[in-house]
Simulated scan of single mutants.
Amino acid sequence: MNKSSTLQNSLMLTPLIGVTDSLVTALGLWLMFALVLSAYGVSMSVLRSRMIPATHLLACLLLTATLTSCAELATQAWSLQWHQHLGFYAGLIALQCVVLEHNGFFQSPRRDRLRLCGLFGALMVGLGLLREFIGNGTLASHLSWMAGATQPDWQGWTLIADGGLHLATLAPGGFILLGLLIAAHQAWTRRPAAPH
């Protein structure tokens, strides 16, 4: 693992733990990430050949900051509650795009880009579901925020009347759950050693 992939993965870890306290925020940030990443990839494919190398980083920064800001403004206009729960994590999308551009991600085959985006989305949504269920005892609470409803009538499914283990909705609980999921994946995929 080289330094650039370590930076790329650690930048993805921040929103993964920060916004996956519920399904709605995890799904919202992933949709915003996919939209900005797609728009950025298309825009830079047109601009990349017309730029001199000295202006590449500046153009990259301006484009990704503009696209991320537009996505944040659209989210804020659509549903203020949803935007408030995303917090500053949406702004990290711009930084992630710059790092991905620097690593040559946008020159890689489309299948690889879709795979990374899909894996990141699946991990975010899965972790959001688990943390909301374990932490609050609910599923899909505040889903009406994504529909832009100002007066929510439906608060999701309450599965545990007393709530859940609140630690799961906090950042340390997110790290613990992610560590347990990684350990379970490694145990599941480990092949037994061949007898000597």
Rank of each mutant, 00 (worst) to 15 (best):
L31G: 08
L31N: 03
F33S: 04
A34G: 07
A34F: 09
L35P: 01
V36C: 06
S38L: 15
A39K: 08
A39Y: 12
A39H: 09
Y40S: 01
Y40H: 07
Y40L: 05
S43T: 15
S49I: 08
P53W: 08
A54G: 11
A54L: 13
A54W: 11
L57T: 11
C60D: 08
L61A: 13
T64W: 02
A65T: 10
T66D: 07
L67V: 05
A74H: 10
Q76T: 14
Q76G: 11
S79V: 10
Q81W: 13
Q81R: 08
Q81L: 08
L86H: 03
G87A: 05
F88E: 12
G91V: 07
L95Y: 06
L95K: 03
C97I: 04
V99K: 01
E101I: 06
F105A: 11
F106N: 01
Q107E: 14
R111Q: 12
D112Y: 08
C117D: 01
C117I: 14
G118R: 04
L119Q: 11
G121I: 09
L127G: 03
L127W: 00
G128S: 03
L130F: 06
L130V: 06
N136Q: 11
N136Y: 05
T138F: 07
T138Q: 08
L139I: 13
S141V: 07
L143K: 02
S144M: 12
W145F: 09
M146D: 04
